[in-house]
Every structure is written in C-alpha cells, then in structure tokens.
C-alpha cells in the first residue's frame, strides 16, 4: 500500500476515534437461536475503535451465528447492535433501512469468509475482485481502479502481474489475501472474519496472520474474528469472548483469559491446546 493511502486511512480512523471515546459497536442482549443452545444467546459487549475482538469456542458453539448476526447478515431474535457511524450518529443496524445496511457492508465494513469462494468472484480477475467495491460506491475511472488494485495486490503480497488472473488459479493463501484486499479497498473501519486461516497450511497460516496483524495495526482497524485456534486468538486479539452452547461463558483481555482462565470450560479449552 502506498504511504499517502496509508496516511489518509490512519488519519480518518484517528479522527473518528478521537472525537469519540465511544464504542464503535454496543451489543446488548443479542440473541439468535435455531434451537435451544444452538445459535447465540444474550451476548453483550462493546467494541472500541482499533480493537480486535476474538470469538473462540468449540465447533457448534455459535461463533458463526454470532458473527453473522453482528455483521448485519442475519436478523437476530432479540437484542440490539448500536453502530457509531462515520458521520457521528449512532444507529441500531437492524433498524436501518436495508439499503443503508447493505451500503455499510460494502463500504465501512468488510467480511472475510472462511472459504474464499464465498467472499470472492472466482471467475473474474483479481483486479476486478479488488475493484468491485470501488465501482459499487461509484468510481467510474478504469485507470484509477486499476492503480488501486495494483497497490492493494502489493499490500497483500501478491505479485502485481497476477492482476488479470482469476482467483481460482491462486493458492489458498493467496485467495485469502485477495479477499482481504478486496475488503480493505474502501478503507473500512470494521472487519468481520470467520476462521480466515482455517484450511491453510501452517506456514501459510503464519504468513497470513503476520500480514493481518500488520494491516490491523497500520490501518487501526477494528476487527471481530472468529477462530477455534487459540494461537490465532493470542496473536491477533486484544480481547476474547469464549462461547459454549450459544452462550458467552467468559470474556476479557486475551492474555488474562488464556493465562488465567476462570470458567471451567475455558480452562478445558486452554489446557487441551497446551497438551498436544
């Protein structure tokens, strides 16, 4: 990414965090259940600008359900999600018009899916994948779109001469990095990620995590990341939420939770990772 771009993003994010010490998201009593214990129940937390929140828990504990509900893609049964908008006003995302909600999702927010095929257009070029959001928000200059595409390929460590190749010719790690670039191109403030390193080789995972960590710091992004890999959580997350059967059983600073878990379930989770 070029420096001017980076400065602009940082300045924008710094401004909005300074003018308001308010949380970016205020989540209250959020509930979405498919059946008792299946989904997420009574979730409460605040997310502050620049913060990375990890959601951990075993398979089926409701992590994806919670993430989808949080990211305006799955209507909750109960509860509210207040979003502090760029323009300053605070609004419940499910009380916004659908149009506004979808607009947020393709500009201020980003979603990185576990499976690249869910987050990329596999049969259009990498450049078009990155450019799509720009075109969606009204950019009509091919040369500009292409230039930004090249910058973002570089930023996510993909060879610039791959710009016209389709992502199905990319490795899994490259696809994930492309997905990240595709989201970051509109300078979003908040990124949702569901197991972004799942299904990747360990060395590829490490590289992606490194990249993610740098981008998050450079761009002062707020992130909510779902993972069942506590090592990933340790590396990226400032705070953790531990889920079990749809409920948050413990939440707090990542180091505290991983080094001194209070809830028996968290203790189990942490110990099972420590004894391979």
């Amino acid at each position: 990414m070029n420096n001017a771009m980076m400065d602009a993003v940082q300045a924008a994010n710094r401004d909005s965090s300074m003018q308001a010490e308010q949380p970016l998201l205020t989540v209250d009593g959020l509930t979405k259940l498919y059946a008792p214990g299946k989904g997420c129940m009574d979730v409460n937390f605040n997310l502050y600008p620049g913060e990375v929140l990890g959601i951990v828990g075993e398979s089926g504990s409701g992590k994806t359900t919670l993430l989808e509900t949080l990211s305006a893609r799955l209507q909750p049964d109960r509860g509210s999600i207040l979003y502090h908008q760029k323009e300053g006003a605070v609004a419940d995302i499910y009380e916004m018009t659908e149009s506004r909600r979808r607009q947020l999702l393709r500009s201020d927010w980003g979603v990185v899916h576990q499976h690249p095929r869910d987050g990329l257009r596999m049969n259009v070029s990498a450049g078009a994948n990155i450019g799509e959001r720009l075109m969606a928000v009204g950019n009509r200059h091919y040369g500009d779109i292409r230039k930004v595409g090249l910058e973002w390929l570089k930023a996510v460590e993909i060879d610039e001469n791959r710009i016209d190749d389709q992502p199905r010719t990319f490795s899994g790690g490259m696809q994930q990095r492309l997905q990240i670039a595709r989201n970051l191109v509109t300078n979003p403030r908040l990124i949702f990620m569901d197991e972004p390193t799942g299904g990747l080789d360990v060395s590829v995972q490490a590289r992606l995590l490194d990249l993610l960590r740098n981008l998050v710091m450079e761009l002062q992004l707020s992130v909510i990341i779902v993972t069942h890999d506590l090592a990933v959580a340790r590396l990226l997350a400032d705070r953790l939420m531990v889920m079990r059967r749809g409920k948050v059983v413990e939440q707090g600073l990542t180091d505290q939770i991983l080094d001194d878990p209070q809830h028996p379930y968290t203790q189990l989770l942490v110990s099972s990772v420590l004894t391979p």
Partner: peptide, 22 residues
C-alpha cells in the same frame, strides 16, 4: 430484484472492467 431496487449495480461495471483488462 433487491439489487435493482437498491441500485446495486457495481457488478455491471465489473463486467466492463473485465472487458478492458482482457
């Protein structure tokens, strides 16, 4: 239908972008 109603037409330009790139 939703895309039309909300004028979410970014993908139409994706198609034209691909033409030019190719």
């Amino acid at each position: 239908r939703k895309m039309h109603a909300l004028q979410e037409y970014g993908v139409m330009h994706v198609k034209l972008y691909e033409d030019i790139a190719r």
